[in-house]
Amino acid sequence: MEEYLGISSDKLLTAGAETVYMVCISLFIGSLIAFPLAILLYLTRKNGMYQNRILNGILNVIINVIRSTPFIIMLVCVMPLTKVLVGTRIGTKAALVPLTIYIAPYLARLMEGALLETKEGIIEAAESMGATPLQIVWHFILPESLGSLILTITTGTIGLIGATAMAGYIGGGGIGNIALTYGYQQFNNRLMFFTVLILIIVVQLIQNLGTWASAKIKRTR
């Protein structure tokens, strides 16, 4: 294996662990930020339960600005903030900050879309039962959009895996970094294709898992 790929399997495993670490932590924190944001977007939108044009407008601008910044630029831009939050500008831990900032608004936007899928009639039925706005979100909108929310997390995870490849730029490590530095830059095509193949398989598995879980929850056959 080592001879074939020209790299120690230890290095490969470490890189795999780094990718998993970066994806999981930033996905977790990113979702924690994105979810309330999505609900806020949903509630304050035009004709929403707590329509608020100013708040909705501000949130939209922030999300759009972050989403339109290329990730490689953001990696560098947020360095001062990274230093404050995790104490260093480089390394796997340091990559968590830009990754989270990158994924949170992306997820928020996707989640907002999932919440909007809830049929008008369901909300009308909830109102006719005398549900409070919070109850409408908790008892009606969330269960109805849970399947779609899982799909958004799936999409977010896959997006993050792609972004972690660039985290190598600030020493974040990870599988993508192996492909770039040991594969591409050292003309080790075999290693490059191997790592890309691994990424393809992982992405496939995650997508299938997400699609399966979503269908299971949606219960629409």
Binding site: I122, G130, P143, E144, I217, K218, R219
Partner: peptide, 20 residues
């Protein structure tokens, strides 16, 4: 109003049940 609504049931053409 919410209390009063609990005293008024409503059914719909499209049923509006939670699919999940």
């Amino acid at each position: 109003l919410r209390k009063l609504r609990k005293n008024i049931g409503m059914i719909f053409q499209q049923f509006n049940l939670l699919e999940s």
